[in-house]
């Protein structure tokens, strides 16, 4: 399986994603500059964390007009797998490839800490190796991570089981206290209707070796590797 990691000016999680794919899953991986429009040969595209274009205007608001985004749209229309992590999630929402948007954390602070998230959907291409209800320990590092969507969209996401991850406590309860940024419904990650585009604020690629404090991100990466294309 061949992964591509998109680099925008200001991406900073690109190397984390690259090494996690190469060294932990053993799959082949290449960087893709955001001006590229050719995704032939790739099976899975990762939009990494960071601050594309310095988060100027809005997080992901400038990057959504990069040439790669139209290519990703076509790639996903053809069934290709796409995951946005952190800033990548913000970009996918801005581009309309995922529902909802990310707003400034309700605390108005940059939150950088390990959090617990519960896997609410374990049938997606991004979570098939996880158990339903499994509590993962993954790091977050963001200022703009408050997931917001209108109530109609939220109802659809809930009804269709498209909430992938939810901030929770140690026991898996999605409490207000466990919500680090004020996200609606404690939502930390969602998947599109077709199930081939996902976005999440926590960083699975930064939780793949013991020295990083958690290896819980491996099941997300491995799910992408093993899901049928």
């Amino acid at each position: 399986m061949k992964f591509g990691v998109v680099r925008f000016p200001g991406s900073s999680g690109d190397k984390d994603a690259y090494f996690a794919v190469r060294d932990v899953t053993g799959q082949s991986v290449e960087y893709i500059w955001h001006e590229s429009t050719d995704l032939s040969g790739f099976d899975c595209i990762i939009l990494p964390g960071g601050a594309s274009y310095g988060d100027y205007l809005r997080a992901g608001g400038v990057a959504k007009n990069s040439p790669i985004i139209d290519a990703i749209r076509k790639f996903a229309d053809g069934g290709g797998r796409v995951i946005g992590i952190g800033n990548g999630f913000q970009i996918l929402c801005e581009a309309g490839l995922l529902p909802g948007d990310l707003l400034m954390n309700n605390t108005a602070r940059f939150r950088c800490l390990p959090v617990k998230v519960r896997v609410d959907n374990n049938t997606s291409d991004f979570s098939g190796k996880c158990c339903k209800g499994q509590v993962l320990s993954l790091p977050i590092a963001h200022l703009t991570g408050r997931y917001y969507c209108d109530s109609d969209t939220l109802n659809v996401l809930e009804k269709d089981g498209r909430v992938l991850l939810r901030y929770c406590d140690e026991s898996g309860n999605a409490t207000e206290q466990a919500n680090p940024n004020g996200s609606v419904g404690n939502i930390a990650g969602v998947v599109n209707e077709r199930g081939n585009i996902a976005g999440m604020m926590p960083h699975p690629e930064r939780a793949v070796e013991d020295i990083l404090g958690s290896t819980d991100g491996v099941c997300i990466l491995q799910s992408m590797v093993e899901a049928r294309l």
Binding site: L103, M104, N105, N106, T107, A108, R146, Y148, G182
Partner: peptide, 13 residues
């Protein structure tokens, strides 16, 4: 401007 129904974290500060 942020839509009026949305929490403005900067405004709070």
């Amino acid at each position: 401007t942020l839509k009026p129904e949305l929490l403005d974290a900067q405004g709070k500060v």
